[in-house]
Amino acid sequence: MVTLKIDIKTLSHTYDIEVLHNLSIQLEGKKAVALLGQSGSGKSTLLRIMAGLEKPTSGEVTINDQAVDDPEYRKAVGFVFQSHNLFPHLTLLDNITLILEKTRGFTKEAAVKCAMSNLEKLKLDDQAHKAPRNVSGGQAQRASIARALSIDPDVIFLDEPTSSLDPILTNDVLNAVEDLRDSGKDFVFATHVMSFVRDFSDYVIFMENGNIIEHGPTEIMDSPKTEAMQSFMAKVR
């Protein structure tokens, strides 16, 4: 079983202004790492860089000893976006099989079989032939998790996967993620749902204004050392 190893050295990233300031952090042997912080604290950018979706302006990032711009690494990354981000013209099933057939060299039958088994895991087998616009937001987001799983990634990144969902659908999606605990995958995720962080993560990283302020085992949420994290934890539930 893989356990997650994250190594970030002097990472900075700039869009129009610098959004990540000289971050460094080393972690090993974690299963589920949560990024906490207000909107705009840099969580999404950091996730995208760790997933290899964006190239950092400077610094070095390796995950499980692989550089994030290594094509081999990128092939084994699962990413779940804020809004489901399924291809809207394809059914849930085709969203998965297209990727497996065209970029992973699966035959049609193997692709369908793999896609269906992942959709089943997310309790979506009866929705497989529907288009994203014809299922609920929660189902679409679960389908995008199934899509991320289907390429058999080592690590799955989730970028506030429930921020566009109502509380009931939020539970629906987060319960589905919790059920993946024993899937052998590692998770790095950003979310505003603190109960989920407590239940699911074994490590938290608290960010503010593009800096890592505090990080440690999930328990630090109950007794933050820094003023910034204390004030954040006091405001959220």
């Binding site: 995208r48 997933a51 290899g52 979706l53 094509p71 990128r74 092939k75 990354v77 990413f79 976006f81 809004s83 981000n85 291809f87 809207p88 013209h89 297209l98 990727i99 065209k102 970029t103 390429i151």
Partner: peptide, 27 residues
């Protein structure tokens, strides 16, 4: 076609031809 869709296409490793043929043009 949103930036995030392009990001997803890159993530899954579609070639330029595949992006147009299977994802961009049909939409």
């Amino acid at each position: 076609i949103t930036d995030e869709q392009f990001m997803a296409m890159d993530l899954f490793g579609f070639t330029s031809y595949q992006k147009y043929r299977y994802i961009i043009v049909p939409q």
